[in-house]
Design a protein around this nucleic acid. Sequence first.
RNA 1: GGUCCUGUGGUGCAGUUUGGAGUGCACGCCGGCCUGUCAAGCCGGAGGUCGCGGGUUCAAAUCCCGUCAGGACCGCCA
Length: 572
Amino acid sequence: MRTDRCGDLRVGDVGRTVTLCGWVDRRREHGEHLAFVDLRDRSGVVQLVVDGAHDLRSEFVLRVTGTVRERPADTANDALATGAVEVDAQAVEVLAAAEPPPFPLDERTEVDEVLRLRHRYVDLRRPRLQRNLEVRARVNSAVRGAMEEQGFIEVETPMLVASTPEGARDFVVPSRKEPGSFYALPQSPQIFKQLCMVGGVDRYYQIARCLRDEDLRADRQFEFMQLDAEASFVSQDDVLAFISHAVAAAAEAVTGVRPGEIGRMSWEEAMERYGSDKPDVRFGMELVELTDVFAGTEFRAFQAPCTKGIRVPGGADTSRNRLDDLTERCKRWGAKGLVWMRVTPDGLDSPVAKFLTDDEQAGLRTAMEAEVGDLLLLVADERRTARHILGLLRLELGRPPVTEGGLHFLWVVDFPLFEALDEAGNPIPAHHPFTMPHEDDVHLLDGGDLLAVRSQAYDLVLNGWELGSGSVRIHRREVQERIFSLLGIGPEEAQAKFGFLLDAFRYGAPPHAGFAFGMDRLTAILAGEENIREVIAYPKTQSGADPLTDAPTPIDDRHLEELGLRVLPPAE
RNA sequence: GGUCCUGUGGUGCAGUUUGGAGUGCACGCCGGCCUGUCAAGCCGGAGGUCGCGGGUUCAAAUCCCGUCAGGACCGCCA
């Protein structure tokens, strides 16, 4: 149908007769016999010169044959890749008329997102999404290439799987042949990839669709894509190297620059310095340890297991209103309160300054390297609470936009094996129950401090986003049984939940380790987007609806009956 | 489950604090003029359930209550 793409035409094409197809991007009429029409396809736009264009309206689909010619002197458009040439249209065929679009297709109008989603097919024509889909395709391609270079082979795993009680809420699919039974859609191919290892596929990867029925966020959709990988006979360092190579290839494919080696930080250090297991290290404002400064304080609020603070450089002009708002926010996050102090030439301006001795005030200023004009924010609480609140506060006050500060990948290693104890005193796994404990901490499993046990689990973080996580897996039956027993999972329960994996391990399981990271998140950051919806062709809203198709929708009674289902009336 | 923000012609906004006639801006749309524009320009025109429901008031886009939709976040996401 066409000989060229609009955006490809250059001075070298002058004199050629070309046929182009595309949409009317814009039209400029100059009387009955001269008009300019910008014709757009995925490659870009080119200016057509048309004898009368009154019937060529916005977004009409055209097929145009004409001669490429150099633009007259002084009429070239440097802002356009094709700006030195134009196409003198001899034949214009309207392939499809179009109603005026529901919103402007230009780049400068920020359109309501529901409207964009309802007319996503129009939105996709806009430069932003055209660009983002291309970034996404490049990231996918680069990651695949990088994994295959390293000897990984792609294996697909099923979408209809058995529900497991662990982890996120499952999406379920009713079985017609076995009414009352359900498949689950996979939260990840975790167990299947481990079975691949037992099956001798010693380097597996897949760009896998994963589904979790949890509340949506800027960085979370019900369904998302993960680069899922697993390898046999490898160490943690090997896995980090494989994945580092893959994300570096993706970054290079988009930015043209290959990132340097990715640094590592222990989970404990990340929590102490940033109050987060996914620290955004693009900016400072690190958490400062102040417990010792107030060790003997008379001030009751600071007589806590842990006192930490952050320094907001130049923040002393923060209004009382804003400080009250931050205090409220901290309380909602679970803090008992927030202590603020403005550093002024006359000392610390704070409601609590009078409760602190001169030594304490001096010690505080030294520890925090406070300068006149700064704002100091302190939280005293249990250590995990103080870290958490200040970590959130730090992001609230200092986090730069996604497009600023460059790309800061970071490996967070040595995660704890257990994140807490439940009411029954059983530990709760921080990652998943197949995670191998750190070799140096295995002895703690027998009567030691369980919460101090580190694991061979690791996360990859990019600019404060958790890209993904992985671990060295337990491949020895006795270790797995020990973990299950600590978790309060008896042999029968273990067999019921993970029997097929445990069975598989009887038949010769190689030591193995793996990782998975979110392709949507990686793509969003590389595309300079704050929200993964901008790099997904057909995303859902925060409530999980699709304004384009109106999903989810009710199904008819006959369909329900066939599946053996009955819908309850809505709860009051 | 919770907190906060937003909702005004097709689109993006202002107007809401301090109630007084659907008032304004830009884009788009329709018609006309216009032979070198490129966010073309000029003239004219059409287009409104101020998200929805209730309340207060002589009077509500504006104040109050509820509700719906969207967004950000906390919880949740092994």
